[in-house]
Design a protein around this nucleic acid. Structure first.
Length: 1080
RNA sequence: GGGCGGUUAGCUCAGCUGGUUAGAGCGACUCGCUUACACCGAGUAGGUCGCGGGUUCGAAUCCCUCACCGCCCACCA
């Protein structure tokens, strides 16, 4: 190797490729259980296969890799389990959307199998891309163990969990009002719904009272933001005791008025006045309506001409609107509750696709939107529309399809959350799981505290199919009295079938469906074999509907006289009452499988060696938006399935926002692809930059910019240009395309990358390290391995070792406490300001001194070695690159004895801090040297003296300081081009001179023939003013009896010392000023 | 409506448990190609620490009020 060929700039691309390959070939990322080592495990938050990774992922994974790499170096058996998430609804939505856009087809045009096939293709493409991105970032995941939440192993875990829950009654099926996404035609959970505020209307309607009696109101007034739902109304409610309800509201308002700040009082008073008015305007009518409701009176539902009851329910607030409220139990969450309480019929007027069904009468077939217009028109024509009010309303929107959500009554599967949620809360309250920063524990506990049942079924095709088969039992023979008997019979017949098919009892669980009017049983399947058996049975029946009789040992079906299927199985001569055996078409919520991720990836439910060794995992690193959705559910599932928490600690890292404070996303065009950053800055810079930003704050801002593919220069991304398909470079005036490019003309242009200049700090740092390494390497010629001779160590050597050991301690502690930014900062400052700016400069001359050279080389090699190791987890590529070069030139190195280092730094031991070397006195002495050097440089710069002019300086100080500074004279010469006039109490400043006064030191620079006397006098005068102000403030502080008596003695003493110092400085400056005046 | 975070130099951010004259990087400005590095070196200028109170001998730091920005959760016809 020719060292002269080392480039002056670190070339990241080649190094990245070389070391990625080597690491993987050597199997450094692969972890196998080993009883001799301690495990350290992280499971990756599996990225969605919806799309490529963005910077948020880059941050998330960088932090994980930093920890994994450090732990690996610390001797842990470090496993980082990689994988991706099928992301059910999100992925299906993306593929369906594309299908519609590109082929104008819906999923129904394709069919279940074809669509799922398409999604698998999509998954293959993006999983590959994601994996590639992670690998390019240097993530040291155990790629041999990569999993996917929808693969067979995860499917087993899902089935087992569902089965266990089903057996224990933690899973149930029930009709519930769910959030219906009409585009995707599936229920979505509350977490997938966003409330948008939109401009809407408030429609005031009136429903005629049936057979009104004189003195009674003829109409009931109601108001709604969704008039079309009136078609499904089944009641109008009025409060059972409107007077009392008003009293209550009034009392509340009065309490509020008493406590409210003056500013809010008028407003509350207004509300009180309105309330009082209501007692005369509304209350009498409400009381009448209440009595009518009690008497069982009805109103006519207009347009449907259906009588619906007036009911008493507390949901109707007498202080709001007309005081009456229409009740649509099947299409409004609150009304649903009223409907249940009042035992009202639930009229569903909606088809799954968002159009109205037969229950909507003549409005059947219309979309909700069109129905709204028509209903309003028709009501108006009938004179039943009183008025329309403009109003801002909250509109629930599906997060996945970005279409409005309709509340919809449907059969869904639920997980009972009471006990599960409690177990997960306990795990955090009693510290089995720790959350950092701790404030996030609150949102975790608050959310779980609601203990709301978890709707887990999705009417999708992409996901884990619910392992339930429902069997309707023939109704032909059923009567109320023999229903149970029939169920039991059917159950035993199904059991016989399973026995016949060699299915074990542990592979299925049969449960009677608890519907009074249905004779159903549900069979939960816990093996692929059992599933297959039922599938065969089902297919067989479908194909052989009209088969006559069964052969021995064969399964046959025929149609009985009442028209129901009967299945015979002659093996046991059992008569099957089972009709329409079908697997549940729904799939599970994607979070169901993600919740099992920490152990499904390790092989559970099999008791694999991996599971035993690596579970529970050590830490989970994720972002705050999925604390509830994912973290909480993993904890409860871990406890449910294994009775052990899935991880001991959780670290929540900040979220990356763009320069406008907005979250990054493809939709906005401000998303940054880590690969773009890697291309421009290198993977190490990406990683270091991200670590540098990972403070404890909630968000970090990252202004985003385009990189012109023509000239390579960057230009700021604006709200305007980030959505354009093509952008003109402000530097070279050439055009380039953006992610939005669709037309051929746009696509023909080269694409501009999107990055952020915030990575340039890290890029510069990597380059600095590279060059410091280059310097070291270039000076290792003739290196002789051996221990360092301590007797030869100079002040700067001891200082560097002291600093190195302090830094080692700080970095280790910071990383172990997830203070990534602080660790990065400590290393940055040490490497740049101390190692490069001071040590390397000071060592230059010594390297050409044969007497010192050997020892200095050893020390230099040793310190670089340690620094590289400390930096390796953050910037793995450049450190590995330098390490390999260092190994060639200094094949054995060390402080007390020279040892052969590991071939690759990735498996080198993590440095430990040795307190023996940490020496505050040395660091203090070095700081004195630094300040004198700084003072000389500052005077030079201040006086505008060319660097080539050699200065003469003197330092007036006490004898101890003088003894300390004297040996540093050569460094003042080499680092500030300044010769010493002497050190000590008797040094006399020449005239003219410039000076700088620091604590206990006065530095003079002889400026004969160099100085601008007037300017210097002016500066000194200004400085003196500042000093006088400081003196005054200190004096007044010390004259304050309170301060002197109450502040701790050392603080008072310190203030006194400072005052004396300031006075001393002022006196010196005054003297200097007088000298200069004489000169002038 | 409830909760959480933020507001410090032109920009992006440090500043943990209160105690020198509030720091860094970028940008600006002045010098400089000095035997690793111009993705560099030496230096300078920029701040009433969002507003107003309070606690304290002492507040960027602790407490309260308010304002603005952001996020999460809930949601009244």
């Amino acid at each position: 190797m020719n060292l002269q060929d080392l480039p002056k700039q670190y070339e990241h691309a080649a190094a990245q490729e070389r070391w990625s390959k080597t690491w993987r070939e050597r199997g450094y990322f692969h972890a196998v259980p080993d009883a001799k080592k301690q495990p350290f495990t992280i499971v990756i938050p599996p990225p969605n296969v919806t799309g490529a990774l963005h910077l948020g992922h880059a941050l998330n994974n960088t932090l994980q890799d930093i920890l994994i790499r450090m732990k690996r170096m610390q001797g842990f058996n470090a496993l980082w389990m990689p994988g991706t998430d099928h992301a059910g609804i999100a992925t299906q939505a993306v593929v369906e959307k594309r299908l519609l856009e590109e082929e104008k087809k819906t999923r129904h045009d394709l069919g279940r199998e074809k669509l799922v096939e398409r999604i698998w293709q999509w998954k293959a493409e993006y999983e590959k891309r994601i994996t590639g991105q992670l690998q390019q970032m240097g993530c040291s995941c155990d790629w041999e163990r990569q999993r996917f939440t929808l693969d067979d192993q995860c499917a087993r875990a899902v089935r087992q969990t569902f089965f266990k829950m089903f057996q224990e009654g933690k899973i149930y099926r029930g009709k519930r009002l769910v959030n219906w996404d009409c585009f995707l035609q599936t229920a979505v959970s509350d977490d997938e719904v966003n409330q948008d505020t939109v401009k809407g209307h408030f429609w005031h309607l009136k429903y005629p009272v049936e057979n009104p009696i004189a003195g009674e109101p003829e109409f009931v007034h109601v108001a709604t933001t969704r008039p079309e739902t009136m078609l499904g109304d089944t009641a109008v409610a009025v409060h059972p005791d409107p007077g009392a309800a008003l009293d209550e509201v009034e009392t509340e308002l009065r309490v509020k008025l008493a406590d409210a700040p003056a500013k809010e009082k008028p407003d509350i008073q207004k509300q009180l006045d309105a309330l009082a008015e209501r007692r005369t305007t509304h209350l009498p009518t409400l009381l009448k309506l209440r009595d009518m409701a009690k008497a069982g009176r009805m109103v006519t539902l207009p347009l449907q001409n259906r009588p619906i009851p007036l009911v008493c329910d507390e949901w109707a607030k007498p202080d709001l609107g007309s005081g009456c409220v229409k009740i649509t139990p099947a299409h409004d969450p609150n009304d649903y509750e009223v409907g249940k309480r009042q035992k009202l019929p639930m009229v569903n007027i909606l088809n799954p696709d968002g159009t109205l069904n037969a229950n909507a009468g003549s409005y059947q077939g219309l979309t909700m939107k069109k129905a709204r217009t028509k209903v309003v028109e028709d009501l108006d024509a009938l004179g039943l529309l009183e008025r329309v009010e403009d109003r801002e309303i909250a509109l629930p929107m599906s997060d996945r399809s970005k279409t409005p959500i309709e509340p919809y009554l449907a059969d869904q599967w639920f997980v009972k959350m009471d006990e599960l949620a409690q177990s997960a809360m306990d795990a955090v309250t009693d510290g089995r799981v720790e959350i950092f920063p701790n404030r996030y524990a609150k949102s975790y506990l608050d959310w779980l505290g609601e203990k709301r049942d978890w709707p887990v079924s999705r009417q999708l095709w992409w996901g884990h199919r619910i392992p339930i088969w429902s069997a309707s039992i023939t109704h032909g023979d059923a009567t109320e009295s023999n229903a149970i008997e029939l169920q039991i019979k059917a159950k035993s017949e199904l059991e016989a079938y399973f026995k016949f098919s060699d299915i074990e009892k542990s592979e299925y669980h049969i449960h009677f469906r608890e519907y009074p009017d249905d004779l159903d049983l549900m069979c939960c399947i816990n093996s692929e074999r059992a599933n297959q058996a039922l599938k065969d049975f089902y297919d067989f029946k479908k194909k052989n509907e009209n088969l006559e009789a069964g052969e021995n040992g064969q399964l046959k079906t025929l149609v009985n006289p009442t028209g129901y299927y009967l299945a015979y199985m002659n093996a046991g001569n059992a008569l099957h009452h089972i009709k329409e055996l079908e697997q549940d078409p729904d799939v599970l919520d994607t979070w169901f499988s993600s919740a099992l991720w920490p152990f499904s990836t390790l092989g559970w439910p099999e008791q694999t060696p991996e599971l035993k060794y690596f579970y529970p995992t050590s830490v989970l690193i994720t972002s705050r938006d999925i604390i509830t959705l994912w973290v909480a559910r993993m904890v409860l599932m871990g406890l449910f399935d294994l009775d052990q928490v899935p991880f001991k600690q959780v670290f929540i890292h900040p979220k990356i926002l763009d320069g406008f404070g907005e979250t990054m996303s493809k939709m906005k065009g401000n998303g940054v692809d880590p690969l773009d950053v890697i291309a421009q800055y290198g993977a190490d810079s990406l990683r270091f930059g991200l670590a540098y930003m990972a403070t404890e704050t909630q968000d970090v801002r990252m202004p985003v910019e385009f990189v012109c593919p023509h000239c390579g220069k960057t230009m700021e991304q604006t709200l305007k240009n980030r959505i354009q398909t093509r952008v003109t470079c402000t530097h070279c005036s050439k055009e380039f395309s953006t992610q939005w490019a669709k037309t051929e003309a746009d696509l023909a242009l080269p694409r501009g990358a999107v990055t952020s200049e915030r990575f340039s700090v890290a890029r510069n740092f990597c380059n600095k390290l590279w060059n410091a390494s280059r310097f070291t390497l270039l000076n290792l010629e003739g290196y002789e391995p051996g221990p360092i001779d301590e007797s030869q160590l100079l002040l700067e050597d001891r200082w560097l070792l002291s600093r190195l050991n302090t830094v080692t301690k700080q970095v280790t502690e910071n990383l172990e406490h997830y203070h990534f930014a602080e660790a990065a900062r400590v290393l940055y400052d040490f490497a740049w300001d101390e190692f490069c700016s001071f040590y390397v400069e000071m060592v230059k001359a010594r390297l050409s001194d044969p007497a010192q050279r050997v020892n200095v080389q050893r020390l230099l090699a040793y310190v670089l070695d340690s620094l590289l190791r400390l930096l390796h987890p953050m910037i793995p590529f450049v450190t590995e690159e330098v390490w390999s070069l260092l190994n060639e030139l200094a094949p054995a190195r060390g402080l007390t004895k020279a040892e052969k280092p590991c071939q690759h730094i990735i498996v080198a031991p993590w440095p430990t801090s040795d307190a023996r070397w940490i020496d505050a006195a040395i660091e203090d002495r070095f700081a004195r040297f630094q300040s004198v050097l700084g003072a000389i440089r500052e005077i030079r710069s201040r006086q505008n003296i060319a660097p080539k002019v050699t200065l003469n300086f003197g330092v007036k100080c006490d004898a101890a300081l003088a003894a300390l500074l004297e040996p540093m004279t050569p460094y003042f010469a080499s680092m500030a081009n300044a010769n010493s006039l002497g050190y000590g109490p008797n040094v006399v400043a020449p005239v003219p001179a410039a000076n700088t006064i620091l604590s206990g030191l006065e530095i003079f620079v002889d400026l004969a023939g160099l100085i601008d006397v007037a300017a210097e006098m002016q500066r000194i005068t200004k400085e003196l003013e500042k000093l006088q102000a400081g003196i005054k403030s200190k004096e007044s502080k010390l004259n304050n009896a309170g301060f002197v008596s109450r502040a701790p003695a050392d603080v008072v003493a310190q203030e006194k010392a400072q005052l004396d110092e300031l006075k001393g400085r002022a006196a010196s400056l005054e003297g200097l000023l007088n000298d200069l005046k004489k000169q002038n």
